Computed example of a mutant assay.
Amino acid sequence: MSTSEFRPPYMPLTERDHALKERGFALLNAAETAQWLGADEADLARLHAIWDDLPSDDYMKDGGRYRRRRHSCFEVEGGAVTQVAHRAHWQPLQYNALHGGMQRWFEPMDEGVVASPVWKRLLAGVGAAATALHGARPWFVEAHPFRIDTTDGIGRPTPEGAHRDGVDLVAVFMVARHQIKGGESRVFEAEGPNGQRFTLREPWSLLLLDDARVIHESTPIQPMVDGEMGWRDTLVLTYRRGGFQGD
């Protein structure tokens, strides 16, 4: 695997909404993200602790053991954040050819985390970006804390390949990387030739995607040192108008 990397094209927070409208994606560094969401290092460190207690994803059709996750759902309207009853994660085959078309039940997120002020600010803040892009409305939000590790020697952050999620806005927080190489993010126009590739390394840097306009993927990860475990932690939030997929 090549060790060369493309640097993330970070932008000032003030350019976030314009970049989403013009290019279909926006990329904020950790400092800009923390400023936007009103979260300090202690807040984010407490939030990151939940990644050490993610159950295995038992739905992997490629036979992999490299993915751990939880899943919870919310409604966001303005600054109001409400957790909804636990439900299955469902995607149509159109958007996920590998795992679409089936109900996948994952363990919910920790109650203390989802009740915390920083979590509510985070969901409401990303909701403001969705509203700036698509107009004010209730947003139906699915939250996915992921850990992709090198249990199998290689881990695939997006085993379904380059894809869209069938929502209005996708937020991908790079939470942590530990002793890995790879994991390059790639964003391409859904209806055009242009694309960007870069490797996210800053904890709590953020990639925002207009799901209708771009497709995205992340390349596989490998351990930095053979025989030693490595992992990549991310938080993926999806915002959708009109209801959750599968309703």
Rank of each mutant, 00 (worst) to 15 (best):
V118R: 02
A190Y: 05
R232S: 03
T199N: 09
G182I: 10
M11C: 12
M224S: 12
F25L: 14
N29W: 05
L207R: 04
G230H: 06
E217L: 09
A30C: 10
T238A: 02
E184V: 13
V187K: 07
V170D: 01
P108G: 02
F74E: 00
F188H: 13
D40Y: 11
P12G: 08
K181A: 11
R87Y: 07
E228C: 09
L123F: 13
P159G: 01
T82H: 10
A124R: 09
E107K: 14
A30G: 13
T33C: 10
P108A: 04
A34P: 03
A115E: 15
W231D: 13
Y66V: 00
M11K: 04
L206T: 14
N29M: 08
P220C: 12
A130D: 12
D40M: 12
N96R: 01
P9V: 10
V84K: 01
R164Y: 00
D58H: 12
S56G: 04
E75Q: 12
R70L: 06
K21Y: 03
N96K: 01
G78I: 08
T3R: 10
Q103G: 02
A124T: 12
D247E: 15
I50H: 11
G192D: 08
D40T: 11
E202D: 15
M224G: 12
A115L: 07
L122F: 10
L54V: 13
G125P: 13
E202Y: 09
Q83K: 14
H178Q: 14
G127I: 13
R240P: 02
H18N: 05
R67Y: 03
V172M: 12
I148D: 01
H163Q: 01
T3N: 07
L28K: 06
V126C: 15
W105G: 00
L93M: 08
I180N: 05
M174P: 02
S72T: 13
A128D: 15
H48I: 00
K120Y: 03
D52N: 15
V225P: 00
D226S: 14
D43Y: 09
R23C: 10
D57L: 07
E77D: 11
R46G: 12
P159D: 01
L27W: 11
Y239G: 03
R87G: 07
